[in-house]
């Protein structure tokens, strides 16, 4: 049996949409998922939608542009700003570059947003469709095996994905309406698209993740992938070590003696600090475990646990660690 069977399953469709509320670590998960795919020989493109472009920073690469650039071996990235997608659409479809200065002015973009809510979302999804069709709007050729979409934050995410489905007040006429049908086909085809959710083990993020997951399934009919839970405190301290720093003086003496054997002098203050950290970790773990249980009850998809990173910021080494965790847990799915 192929040992990577379940990693392949996780990476199965080409388009992966990573959803979640702001601040839960969607970009980190997108980057880690991209590394997993790249490790398995896939050429990956991570699409950031209308954001500051924090993804390239994780890879130590330059800021992204509207066309894909290679961030690290096998991992490409691009940042699709709604304004750029709109300008490209008007240029390609209507040859309107002559007045493009006006078209990209913020008031005009605001106008189009109000006049046709959902249009910009449709154009951004259109860019993803082009990537999937292995070409760009101006005829360039792409060949990505995996496309990971770092979706807009939860508030906007449902509107973003539902824009082509005509569920909202979106564009109801013209060529865009027809083009939207291709996007709906792309999003709702389980062989082409899957949506993952990202959460943290806290009350609000869990509640919102359950709501997002329901909306993706019931309203948008997009196949559900995994749920990634970020920032889980790891179990560093075993139960016996935890007990040893409680009020048991014999056990405390044991720790002091063990320290002395390696020339480590521990006084009561040191032991109290060790006890306090152990207690803090275990109480946070209990809170997180409670929220994880609520998440497990509220959603159907498999849950992948990602650790709280006790490190000085998040860069490539940390993303590699998260990718290890994802690979390992995918094997157990």
């Amino acid at each position: 049996m192929n040992p990577d069977m379940s990693v392949d399953e996780l990476l199965n469709p080409r388009i992966h949409i990573v959803c979640g509320k702001g601040g839960v670590g969607k970009t980190t998960v997108s980057a880690a998922l991209a590394l997993v795919a790249a490790r398995h020989g896939r050429k990956v493109c991570v699409v950031e939608v209308d954001r500051k472009g924090s993804l390239p920073k994780l890879f130590g690469a330059k800021s992204p542009s509207y066309e894909p650039s290679e961030l690290s071996p096998g991992v490409w990235g691009l940042n699709v700003l709604q304004e750029d997608a709109l300008a490209e659409y008007l240029n390609v479809q209507y040859h309107m570059q002559r007045i493009s200065r006006v078209l990209t002015s913020s008031h005009f973009v605001d106008y189009i947003t109000i006049a046709a809510p959902g249009l910009k979302d449709i154009l951004v999804l259109g860019k993803i469709w082009y990537l999937e069709q292995d070409r760009s709007a101006d005829g360039k050729h792409y060949d990505f095996d995996t496309i990971i979409v770092d979706a807009p934050a939860a508030g906007h995410m449902i509107a973003f994905l539902s824009a082509p489905m005509g569920l909202s007040d979106a564009v109801q006429v013209g060529p865009i309406r027809r083009q939207s049908d291709w996007l709906v086909e792309m999003l709702q085809d389980t062989a082409r698209t899957v949506a993952h959710v990202v959460a943290m083990a806290e009350e609000m993020p869990v509640a919102e993740t359950i709501a997002t997951s329901e909306a993706l399934h019931d309203r948008l009919h997009i196949a559900q992938g995994a749920a990634f839970v970020n920032g889980l405190y790891p179990k560093i301290v075993g139960a016996s070590a935890e007990r040893a720093v409680e009020d048991d003086s014999e056990a405390r003496d044991g720790l002091i003696r063990a320290g002395a054997l390696v020339n480590l002098t521990l006084d009561d203050g040191d032991l109290d600090a060790l006890a306090d950290y152990a207690r803090f970790l275990s109480s946070r773990r209990k809170i997180q475990a409670r929220h994880l249980r609520a998440l497990r009850k509220g959603i159907d998809q498999p849950i992948l646990n990602l650790p709280f990173l006790f490190s000085s910021g998040i860069a490539l080494p940390e993303i590699e660690m998260l990718a290890d965790d994802i690979e390992q847990q995918a094997l157990e799915l």
């Binding site: 560093i236 301290v237 040893a244 720093v245 044991g254 060790l274 152990a278 970790l281 006790f310 000085s312």
Partner: peptide, 20 residues
């Protein structure tokens, strides 16, 4: 080391994580 030493190692490891 022995069991007490391993416990202490865990506790110190935990503290070091928090210190970072």
């Amino acid at each position: 080391g022995d069991e007490a030493a391993r416990r202490l190692a865990q506790l110190l490891d935990n503290e070091a994580s928090f210190m970072r």
